[in-house]
Structures are given as structure tokens and as C-alpha cells.
Amino acid sequence: MTPADLSRTVLHAVHRAVAENALRAPVPARVRVERTRPGGSGDYACAVALQLAGDAGLPALEVARILRERVAAEPGIGRVEITGPGFLSFTLDAPGDSDRAVLDAVREQGSAYGHGGALRDEALRFHHAREVRAAVTADAVRRLVVSQGARVRISCEEAGEAGETEWGLLGVTVDAYGTPPVTSPADPSAPLIPVRPVPAGATARELLERLGPDATRWGLLRPASHDRAPLGDELLVQGEANPLFLVRYAYARTRALTRGAAALGFTPAIDAAPYESSARPLLDLLADHPRVLLTAARHRAPDRVARQLEAVAHAFFDFHDSCPPLPSGDEKPSAAHRSRLALAEAAGTVLAGGLSLLGISAPAHL
């Protein structure tokens, strides 16, 4: 984290404190941070609490405590102390520590990286019309909220012979048919939640015959539910202009890199070397992945996951092109190659896990 990054982080904490009504003071245009003087505490110091205390009508020490709560958990910051009359002193993580923590988490959790228990106390009941986009959306929402610990039951307003087999081919399951009561007698805290995206304008059978299950699900889930779902043949185009192909190709490329490294006799190593600046967008997206999944679950918005996967795929290819994980020509594998391979494999893990939550396969070869 650079001094400019730290300044923006502290300023963001001021904005949050004011927005949350924890602090009533005008937000400064910028926050100044300085290197700690010899004998001081931490790497950098900031006097913003003293600056805001008068307008806030609070002691500077109290303002400093309010801001410390909102800065301490930010990536790259190891410790925040309050010194003197209300100075904030920051000790930064060693370069690469937070990156290694993210990559370690991806490696340890695998495709479950980003899953959590934030919704473990929730029992949710979703209800949808007998229409393919509603059914696929409800299924994807189920996968998302279950990944965050919720218990889920899905009902469809009516049963029928036509379309049910095709729903199964799309990975859709329904727990009950008919319209259940708005409030469950067994659990009054679990109201019925309707799932009502803009209809697809085609049946499951028509879409499967034309697009197959993966392209159908992506086409139905990628747009926000209030938008019409484009379901043309562009979903089958084998080119980077097709976001589904881009995401799956990025995953397949990460698997190819692992195979290529094995053939050259080396494996990934997270601690092998610091990352180049071109890796930063990809590292930041991987670090942000758990938040994206939780937000998508809370808002019942699988389209957010699709957009996250597209961003990861673009960042992966930018990183891959500027910092190849495999040596070329007579070049020997180095610590940098091992570290780049670790990042590439982590990107592949996130892509595969995200596609799984959308009910879409991630082939190792394309």
C-alpha cells in the first residue's frame, strides 16, 4: 500500500463514518498521511481526527476511535493505533502478505472459496412461475444463498408434463408445486419470496435444442432479472467477444498452464516472489470474490456473479500476456514463474467455482 493508497483508505473511512451518522462533520477534500518520525509508532501517521474534532463536536480521541474501527480491517493495513491527543498511526502489512493470504485461502478452500455462513440463520422460500427463466433464476439463487449457509425451499406455481424433463437437463429442481401460504406455519419468519425475471420468450426445449444447457443458463442469468435476456446464436460463438466463451476459455487456459508447468518440472509457489504491478487487478478481484458472492446472494442476483467472472477472465488474460507463467525458449523456470503460476491457478479455481454456482460446467479443454 502506497501513501496515496493509505490516504484514500482513510478518506473512505471518513466518508463511511459520516454516511453512517457516526460522525457529523464536513468531509475533507483529502487526507494527509506522513512517515512516522523517529521514535514514533507505526509506519505512517495522520492527524485527521484532530482536524475533524471541532466540527464533529467530539474529542479528537473519540473521532480517532470511530475512524480506527473503519480502517483497521482494510486490506494492506496490519495495525492501527491511537497515539498522543488523537493521532492515527498505521503499521502496514509487509508487501505481499495480504496477497499470499488470499491465494492461500483459494488453495485451501478450492471451488468453495467465497462460501460462508453469513446467511446460516435464514430459512428462505422462493416461488416462481412455470417459465424457464424463472426456474433457472430460482435455481441459481438457491445455489448462491446455500453457499452462504441459508436453508432453501423452492416451489413452482403449477406442475405439468411438458418442460419438466428439459428443466432437469438444465439442472433445475423444484421442491413443491402449487402456491404455498405466504407465511409458513412451520416457520413464520420465512415469508414466500417471488422470483419474477422478465420471461425468456422461449421454452426450455427450444433453448436446449438451439443452445445447449450451458449457453442457455448463461444467457438467462447474465442479464439482470429486470432486463430482457438476449438468447441468440452469439452465445455459441467461439471467440472472446462472447463472455461465456471468454470465461470458460480463461479457465481452460489456467489448466493448460498447470499441465505445461508439470511437463517442465515445476509447481506453483505462493511465496516464491512478489507480484508485478500488472497482477494487481487480478489479485484485487480474487480478494473481492467472497464479498461479491455474499452480495449476490443477499440481492438474489446471479448476474453479479457472471459479471465478476468476466472481470476475472479479462484480468487474467491481461496478467498472462504481460507476465507469462511459463518460461519461453531456453529460459529456465524461476521463482517469478512459480509465483505467477500460483496466481493463474487461483484465478482458475475462482472461475470454476463461480461457474458452478451458476450451474455451468467448466471444461479443462476448449
Rank of each mutant, 00 (worst) to 15 (best):
F316V: 04
A19W: 10
T2W: 04
A306M: 04
W167M: 13
A94I: 12
E74A: 14
A344K: 00
A56D: 06
A135F: 06
A315W: 03
A25S: 07
F245M: 05
A53Q: 09
H128E: 05
A162L: 13
E157Y: 11
G348N: 03
A159N: 10
V63H: 00
V18F: 08
A138L: 02
R280H: 12
D271I: 05
L231V: 02
E206A: 14
A352M: 08
G201Q: 03
T254A: 01
A250E: 10
L231K: 04
A29V: 12
L58N: 01
P194M: 01
R253W: 09
K332P: 07
L61H: 12
R298C: 10
A311Y: 08
L50H: 07
R255I: 11
A262Y: 07
F126K: 05
C323D: 15
L11T: 00
D97A: 15
R153E: 09
T349E: 09
V14M: 02
E158Q: 15
I82Y: 06
L294R: 14
P243L: 04
H320L: 13
A162C: 06
L326P: 00
P290V: 05
Y113M: 06
T165L: 13
G110P: 05
S334L: 06
L358M: 03
R338P: 05
L58Q: 14
E206L: 07
L236W: 06
L283M: 09
V27C: 02
V136H: 04
R16D: 15
A346D: 05
P181V: 10
R100W: 11
S147N: 05
V152W: 03
C46L: 06
A344C: 04
V198H: 07
R307K: 10
G260Q: 11
V146N: 00
R196V: 15
L169E: 14
T216P: 00
D97W: 10
A204P: 06
V195I: 13
R65T: 12
V198E: 13
R24V: 14
S89G: 08
L170A: 01
Y177M: 09
E34I: 13
Y251G: 02
R125Y: 12
G78A: 15
R142P: 02
T258R: 12
V33K: 00
D233E: 14
V132E: 02
G57K: 07
A272C: 03
F316D: 02
K332V: 13
P28C: 04
C323T: 12
C46M: 08
R32L: 14
E161A: 12
I66C: 09
N242D: 04
R142F: 07
A204E: 06
S334H: 09
A105C: 03
T137Y: 13
S339A: 14
W218E: 05
V106N: 00
A362F: 07
P281I: 01
R100S: 11
E209P: 03
P363N: 09
V136T: 05
A53V: 09
A56S: 05
E331I: 11
A252V: 08
A204T: 04
V195H: 00
G160T: 06
A186W: 10
R35W: 09
S356Y: 08
A272K: 01
A190M: 06
V195P: 01
A17Q: 02
Y177I: 02
L6C: 07
A301P: 03
L52I: 08
L207Y: 08
R153S: 13
A134L: 08
V31I: 13
L220C: 01
S111M: 12
G40E: 11
